[in-house]
Write a protein that binds this DNA or RNA. Structure first.
Lengths: 263, 263
DNA sequence: CGCACGGTTGACCTGTATCAAGCCGGGTGG
DNA sequence: CCACCCGGCTTGATACAGGTCAACCGTGCG
């Protein structure tokens, strides 16, 4: 998967402002949270300007990652959490025997790296699915400042708890849903998160391959493909490559909590 | 369960208000962590006695839960985390359409309730699979004290991170393993945790039904049963009801990371 | 232009679910 | 104390969702 090349340059408006000429792999520079437009996604709301000043110190630098590059890898020492500013990531765990599992897809405003806290080493890989930029937040700094700013402390707890709850949802999906339900749930989840970021509620561009979707959903890529085709036949979605338009969101919702009924 | 006269000394501040009236189902009383024999499972190590005194304030009361009783339920307000002192729990999430999924089994020394932090309400049920006793740790108290005791702060972060990593493992299991691998992984995990608590490395008593195991592993109870039978035939384990003796742990390990070879 | 990777589709196979019957053990009430 | 019942478990027969293997296509990159 070493296919760096031209960044997938889909013009789905939005984050263009942050497009800055890329130099080498991971260029770094300094910025402030206080005037970041993603603030309300990463940070607690209602901070005094004094507190905000403290919180600004959480982010030391930003870092750019090219498509296909890794933000961190299983086994690497853990030092920082990362707030995604732009771009799209997948995280995945692997067993020695080569099998691997995508554990999540992360987009702007989301935090990654929480897995590293327990053992001071990361236990999964974070791979950029498109050119990305993250805010680096050294974890000792986070702990220090969250001792002073209660709202930040609670916010950190919430972020971790949210991740736990999200994973519960994935377990439910993997443990008890059939292929159609999984894919429907996946699409609804993606589009909902994108919508919260100001994108369309009905149209999305998949940043990942069918294989990656399959890995996340516990399905083979062929099954993902077939299920997409089925949705298309039924007029629920339009699919052209990675571009998906949802024609009937209600149908998707019905699929998710139908479970073939009865019993 | 000696009446904790030693704990009565604490007398800190006016938290008496939090004393919940004792009901029949869940009896409550006060104790100290500093001389709890599970300390090293719940708490950070290497605290000064001064810090330990602060940390003692984290646990307000204990609570007993009978087999089949719930510690908390989906939708209930979140106020506290719980450290399991004795007994065995399952946590499970459910969809409106009745389907549900066991997300984990918890034993002595483990912490439950982390799911409630994000939304101030629990998002899953915690059910006692045998008579149990838990330490109640009001979360605002945890936050307060962990601002003062760095080691506690970091410990809380680790506990949450550990849960995230554990769930990654379950996702891997559910997303990419076959029935035998799942059950083998499950048994190894259980026995390893029990061993860490001083129990046998080769013998265990399952506290849950085949159906609950199945729910956790994303299998039907019949498949769980058949897979047990297969392991018995192969001489890997002995199974009498819920009593399991592992005869060949190596074989289980081989099953877990074999994945039908090759590729 | 052509290759290669991602995606689609078809044919077939298999692991697990489903349905059903029966067993075992423990608790209850007569 | 026994008979009975019931929940949990096992086992068999059969069905089917999804996996596997394979061929082919389209598109975007070198």
């Amino acid at each position: 998967m070493s296919r760096p090349s031209a960044a997938a340059k889909v013009s789905t408006a939005g984050h263009e402002a942050t497009h800055i000429p890329i130099q080498d792999a991971s260029q770094t520079f300094r910025v402030a949270c206080s005037n970041c437009n993603l603030r309300e996604l990463c940070l607690p709301v209602g901070l005094t300007s004094e507190q905000m000043e403290r919180v600004d110190d959480v982010v030391t630098v930003r870092r750019k990652i090219k498509r296909g590059g890794t933000l961190f890898r299983n086994g690497e020492p853990f030092t920082s959490l990362f707030a995604i500013r732009t771009g799209f990531f997948k995280t995945c765990v692997a067993t020695e025997d080569g099998r691997d599992q995508v554990t999540g897809f992360q987009m702007a405003g989301e935090i990654i790296g929480l897995d590293g806290i327990v053992h001071d080493h990361h236990s999964c890989d974070a791979v950029a699915l498109e050119d990305a930029e993250v805010c680096v937040m050294p974890f000792d700094r986070i702990e220090e400042i969250s001792r002073e700013v209660n709202a930040l402390q609670h916010h950190v707890h919430k972020i971790m708890s949210r991740e736990i709850v999200r994973e519960h949802g994935v377990m439910l999906l993997l443990g008890s849903m059939r292929a159609e339900e999984r894919l429907a749930a996946f699409l609804l989840n993606l589009v909902q998160r994108l919508h919260a970021r100001g994108f369309s509620q009905t149209e999305l561009v998949l940043r990942m391959t069918r294989e990656e979707i399959g890995s996340y959903l516990g399905l083979k890529l062929e099954t993902v493909s077939r299920t997409f085709s089925k949705f298309v036949e039924e007029g629920i979605v339009e699919v052209k490559q990675r571009h998906v338009r949802i024609l009937d969101a209600e149908a998707l919702k019905r699929i998710v909590n139908s479970q073939q009924e009865c019993r």
